[in-house]
Amino acid sequence: MRVQAFMFYGCAVFFLASDIVYWLWSKDWTGTTALALAIGLAGLIGFYIHFTVRRLEKANGGPLYEDDPDGEIADAAGELGFFSPHSWWPLFLALSAATVTLGMVFGWWLVILGVAATLLTSVGLVFEYYRGHFSH
């Protein structure tokens, strides 16, 4: 994963060079600001990945299998995590967020309704596997 961190750092450097050239040639505040935000976002993601890799390497006691030049495909075998096989909560959460967005167009009462629905569906999504047939 260290390679991915340096890829995002490289994107941040590229966006920085593009931002400087764009500002010098166009004098446009909108595009310059958008590129500056892209620099920040690429740097933020690169820093997060870099920080996470260091923490995982410390917990693992050495380099991760994807960073090992002598690593084999079988080194990545095993459980990667838990992923929900079927859940309706992401759909309801997206509809709630869309309600908030539409509320900004049509009226604040709809924003309040959408925020309440977003909070409820977020709780439903987070606590989906804590009770009932699928409890752990």
Rank of each mutant, 00 (worst) to 15 (best):
A38G: 12
L102F: 10
V100C: 08
L35N: 09
N60H: 14
H86K: 13
S18N: 11
L24Q: 15
A117C: 13
Y130L: 15
H86Q: 12
L102S: 03
F51T: 13
I112A: 13
L120N: 07
L91V: 15
F51Y: 14
G61E: 05
W29E: 09
V100S: 13
G61M: 00
V13K: 14
Y130D: 15
D19C: 05
F127A: 15
L41N: 04
L64M: 03
S122P: 07
T118A: 09
T101P: 01
L44N: 03
T52R: 00
S96A: 15
L91C: 01
W88N: 14
F106K: 07
T121K: 00
S26M: 05
A117L: 04
T52H: 08
D75C: 03
F82A: 15
L80F: 13
H50P: 15
G71W: 00
A12E: 14
L119I: 15
A94L: 14
G107A: 04
V3I: 04
L24P: 11
A117P: 02
S26G: 01
V115N: 13
W29K: 04
D70H: 08
G62E: 07
T30M: 10
G71Q: 01
G31P: 02
G78C: 01
L35M: 08
Q4N: 15
V100K: 06
F51H: 10
W88F: 11
I112P: 10
L35F: 06
L93P: 10
L119G: 12
A34R: 01
L120F: 10
G114P: 02
T121I: 12
G78F: 03
T99L: 05
T33M: 03
W29Q: 08
D28Y: 13
G31N: 08
E72C: 03
I20F: 02
F14E: 09
A94S: 12
Y22Q: 00
E128G: 10
M7G: 15
S18D: 05
A97W: 14
Y65K: 00
A117I: 03
G81N: 06
L95E: 15
F6L: 13
R55P: 11
